Simulated scan of single mutants.
Amino acid sequence: MDAATLSRVDVTDAAAELLRHLAASHGPLMFHQSGGCCDGSSPMCFPVGMFITGPSDEFLGTLNVAGIEPVPVYMSKSQFEYWKYTHLTIDVVDGRGSGFSVEAPEGKRFLIRSRMLTDQELEAFGLS
């Protein structure tokens, strides 16, 4: 098992369903998790091109959701230092999240569920 065959991110069925709905209205989507204020601990979903990533961002992987274009997931490098030993799953719950994320008007909000990387994943990502 190597890092190329593993993913640090995944998506629940419920979040995938909402992503398909949002993509129908907004086109291709991406996630960014900053860890800052203003609900920054929640993943923010944007139409591709509405949030520009740069050298201070870490690419975590791509969510492959049936029926829509792959959804890239980024995190600020500073937050990644705290989360690099975890696998992240994007889920959705009822409630209003940040007004900047495209799901906000839907009465839903994305959130991160995490688990510690397995020994095999730690080795593949060069973290053991």
Rank of each mutant, 00 (worst) to 15 (best):
F31G: 04
G49T: 05
V65Q: 15
R20M: 03
M30R: 03
L88Y: 00
P47G: 02
Q33C: 11
A3E: 11
G35L: 04
L19A: 00
S128Y: 11
C37I: 06
A124Y: 02
L127Y: 14
A23I: 06
G67H: 08
V102C: 01
F125I: 06
P105C: 02
V92I: 07
C38Q: 07
R109H: 09
Q79S: 09
L6M: 09
A4R: 15
N64K: 15
P72G: 08
A24L: 13
L88C: 01
W83H: 11
A23D: 10
D2Q: 08
E123Q: 13
L63V: 08
T89I: 01
D39F: 05
S78T: 10
C45S: 04
F51E: 06
R20N: 10
R115V: 00
H87M: 05
G67L: 05
A23W: 11
P43I: 02
G49E: 09
S41A: 12
L29G: 00
H21C: 11
E81N: 12
T86V: 06
D57Q: 09
I68G: 04
L60K: 12
A14T: 12
S42H: 13
V71D: 13
F110S: 00
E106F: 15
F100Y: 07
Q79N: 12
A66E: 15
V11C: 06
V102I: 01
V48W: 10
I52L: 13
H32M: 10
L29W: 02
F46L: 06
W83D: 07
Y74C: 06
T12N: 04
M30N: 03
I52M: 12
M30Q: 13
T86G: 11
P105M: 00
Y85H: 13
L88P: 02
C38A: 06
V92R: 12
A23E: 13
G40Q: 10
V73R: 01
A16R: 04
L19D: 01
F80H: 13
S78N: 14
L18N: 00
L127R: 15
P70A: 02
D39Q: 11
D91G: 07
S42D: 09
S78Y: 12
P70C: 04
P70I: 07
A4I: 08
M30I: 00
S41E: 14
V65K: 15
L19Y: 04
D39Y: 09
